[in-house]
Amino acid sequence: MTNPLIIVENIVKKYHRGAEELTVLNSLNFTVHEGEFVALMGPSGSGKTTLLNLIAGIDRPNSGYIFVGKDEISALSEDKLAEWRSRHIGFIFQTYNLIPVLTAFENVELPLLLTPLGKSERRKHVEIALSIVGLADRMSHYPRQLSGGQEQRVAIARAIVTDPTLLMADEPTGDLDAKSAEEVLILLERLNSEFKKTIIIVTHDPKAAARASRLVRLEKGILKEDIPTESLDSARFAEAASVFVEARPK
């Protein structure tokens, strides 16, 4: 077993909706090792996206500790946290979140603008990232000129261009057709196996979860199940997935 990369200790996250207080994560403990590919599953409102956001440093817990490597990110100031994200986190969204007025190249280049890299170095990094996702020939295309699958691959290139410690994906195949979703999953799997990226993916899709090395199931802010996927056969996956799908609000 490799070293723990992420340690989540007794995390509590509450939201206020008017006078009402909602506890989304309740004393959650969770560890991810370097190089793992973890699928977070659970019904809507179970806290999986909240957990992802906390680990990515874009949200803060009410109590508890989050360590990523040597950094206790739950204790970092806003500015330090922003700097930390720029170095350690690659985030992939369900809706791609590409900037429409920027080309594929410029979208991928965005995180590099925060680094001291010069223009030619940035270009080299962007070209490598886009070639990894198979879009080296689409650099000058605007998002509107790309298909959904291509847009998501540009978003993945943007997530990996800084060579981050962690890749966080929030339902990356949620808006894609089956073929594009498959391509994106293959790409994520490759980033994990070939480039040794630690990946956490939030998904409702059993096919996506099947690509992961570990399946973590949340329910009402509590970790219900944490099992290696290799121990699951396809029937068990389907069963697990159906549980989740049924639990989703209609």
């Binding site: 990515a56 874009i58 806003e78 500015d79 922003a82 700097e83 170095r87 986190i89 995180p111 925060l114």
Partner: peptide, 16 residues
């Protein structure tokens, strides 16, 4: 609003 949130996710600070 979403784009600005994206930029901050990428590591753009509040000052930036």
């Amino acid at each position: 609003i979403r784009e600005i949130a994206l930029l901050r996710t990428l590591g753009f600070s509040r000052v930036t």
